[in-house]
């Protein structure tokens, strides 16, 4: 690996190479039956870890566990209580 003076990064967007999901102690689980597709979780996620999949006129939300740190903001903001935080266990 080439390290440049001052730790300057020329290869932009390299943050995706460092998976930070391991810091998590709880993970969000989305109940798609309760979800009203409002997108609040996607809006509020501070780590851009909510993935939206569109199929026809139906939007499905899931979590990118490589970067989700389990902060619970999505669960807190969800107006239909469709997101539960589950303890990460070995």
């Amino acid at each position: 690996m080439k390290i440049s003076p001052g730790g300057v990064i020329r290869d932009m967007g390299s943050t995706v190479n460092t998976k930070t999901g391991g810091w998590r102690s709880e993970r969000p689980v989305i109940d798609n039956d309760k979800c009203i597709e409002c997108g609040s979780c996607w809006i509020f996620c501070p780590d851009s870890s909510i993935i939206v999949t569109t199929s026809g006129n139906r939007r499905t939300y899931s979590v990118n566990l490589d970067f989700c740190k389990g902060c619970g903001i999505c669960a807190n903001e969800c107006p239909s209580a469709a997101i539960k935080m589950i303890l990460e266990e070995k």
Binding site: G6, G7, V8, I9, R10, M12, T18
Partner: peptide, 10 residues
């Protein structure tokens, strides 16, 4: 010619 100055170092 973008670069990141002062990023985190692991």
């Amino acid at each position: 010619d973008p670069m990141a100055l002062g990023p985190i170092a692991f």
